[in-house]
Amino acid sequence: MYLAAQGLALKYPNTANYVFKNLSFKLAEPGFNALFGPSGVGKTSLAKIITGEIHTFSGDIRSKGMQTCLYSYNLERLPGWSSVGKHLEKITPPARRSRRDELISVFGLEELIGKRFSRLSLGQQNRVNLLRYLLQDFHLLIMDESLANVDELTREKIILKIKDMYPEAYFLYISHNVVEVSKLCNEIIVLRGGLKEPSATVVPGRNFMTGQEMERAELEQTMLEIVNASS
């Protein structure tokens, strides 16, 4: 199973300007990876190319064994007519009920199960949304700022848990937090925008796992590489 892009280019509609150009990367192993870069460099566009929602690009994108790619983002909402718990009940395949309960506890959502989505804080809403995607079938899950407005400690706890629970799946985590991606992600695709060629560089992350020790210097080195790559 792999996902590979070769020489991808995407133009803004009706202009000669590129969102990105000559973009290549390869995710050969399952793991928790990141799509990193400032706003406007085409992170969401790339995500949509991967999930097949955008077709107007040139270049080559190839995958093997990756039938189900899900894209989730941080502004999604649950329908207003039922509570969080009822909704989760409905969209959880029977075989994953125990996983759901485990995730609810790791995500710290037990108290919110009876509440309506609109009553939750933004961070709570984002956690609920991510949680329901994790209960679906997927080979690749793209998490577009899916943990925005969640405090750092909880975020880290959630990501570590995801890595433990889904060793066979691919993740693409879109985030602006350089420390977070450096520390937790396996590979970081750094997007540099359409004016630079190539538009992306892949930087290896520290891929920190539960229980590991983290070398401060190594982390700083990775962060530096990411910053250099994106500038």
Partner: peptide, 8 residues
């Protein structure tokens, strides 16, 4: 924002 999940 609501329909996306059901669609994908």
């Amino acid at each position: 924002d609501i329909e996306h999940f059901y669609r994908v």
